[in-house]
């Protein structure tokens, strides 16, 4: 056998090993998700093997459960507010950080990044302590405040890094042709960054929807979906919960995949002129 052929064999063997190994990791990552979806459709009242038979009954039961449905609605509502607030806070700040010479820039970046890198537990405790002075906020307002703080943090970072790659000359060209700051934003910045903004909103929404740790501390009697699931886990896991989890998981996967596709597509340099 020639040396090249041997090398090629080694290379393809190496690639095969890589593929096999990566497949195992992906299996590891998706196995629990598959399990939840699987048992949401299984007739057995206590999840376990062997499977008893296909049913969609748990979905019907879940949709008839006022606690589950109420929690789903609450979570959706609160996550929407948090995501909207976070995006609204993040965009102007990211523009300034990316495009204006700013004093204390690294300090501000640390402040912005803080809630992402510190343990969520500590964040939750901090909120509990803060709420001691404002007990009226416990519950839904507190959850929105907390989730906005957390999601605004990486919303700013994502937008900031995206805007760093934004061609400044687009803005300058528009200004040069007579557009003032607001017009530049409406005519140039917004249309060109809209996908990134939507992506950031979706990520923030998904994250706020599923966030449990901080919400658990500040929720009071408010029941978000993760809190209801957590509480139900104290007992035997009902397939009803699997059914609603299935819906949420599929929605979360869809939203986050969509959002990330947008973020990554935006990351590529925009169509180069005359390439």
């Amino acid at each position: 056998m020639s040396a090249t052929a041997l090398k090629f064999r080694q290379a393809s063997a190496g690639s095969a090993a890589f593929i096999a190994y990566s497949a195992l990791i992906y299996l590891f990552l998706y196995l629990p998700i598959v399990v939840i979806v699987l048992f949401a459709f299984d007739a057995k009242p206590v999840p376990g093997l062997p499977l008893a038979g296909f049913t969609t009954g748990w979905f019907a039961q879940a949709s008839a459960d006022p606690v589950l449905v109420g929690a789903l609605l609450t979570s959706t509502k609160l996550a929407f507010f948090s995501a909207a607030l976070a995006t609204a806070l993040a965009m102007p700040a990211a523009m300034v950080l990316a495009w204006f010479p700013t004093r204390f820039k690294s300090l501000i970046l640390c402040l912005v990044l803080g809630p992402v890198v510190l343990p969520q537990l500590v964040l939750g405790l901090g909120f509990v302590s803060l709420l001691r002075g404002a007990p009226n906020l416990v519950g839904e307002p507190a959850i929105v405040l907390a989730h906005t703080t957390m999601t605004a943090s990486y919303a700013t970072m994502v937008l900031y890094s995206r805007l760093l790659g934004f061609r400044r000359s687009y803005i300058e060209a528009a200004m040069n042709l007579g557009a003032n700051e607001l017009t530049v934003f409406r005519e140039v910045i917004l249309p060109l960054t809209l996908p990134a903004l939507i992506a950031v909103f979706l990520l923030a929404f998904t994250d706020a929807f599923g966030e449990f740790i901080v919400a658990w501390f500040v929720a009071g009697f408010t029941k978000t979906l993760p809190i209801v699931i957590w509480t139900s886990l104290r007992q035997v896991i009902s397939p009803k919960v699997n059914a609603i989890s299935t819906i949420i998981i599929l929605a979360s996967l869809a939203l986050s995949v969509l959002a990330q596709l947008w973020v990554i597509r935006q990351a590529r340099p925009s169509a180069r002129v005359g390439a």
Binding site: S22, Y26, L29, Y30, L31, P32, I33, V35, I36, F39, P47, G48, L203, T206, D207, F209, G210, E211, F212, I213, L225, P226, I229, W230, L233, I237, V241, S245, I248, I249, S252, L253, L255, S256, V257, Q260, L261, I264
Partner: peptide, 23 residues
């Protein structure tokens, strides 16, 4: 593949971990 790795991270930790109890 990159997105597929990250996507599970966006699912609520309570749901993801509860699956391991079944497993």
């Amino acid at each position: 593949l990159l997105i597929a790795v990250i996507a599970p991270f966006w699912i609520s930790i309570v749901m993801r971990i509860s699956a391991w109890r079944i497993l």
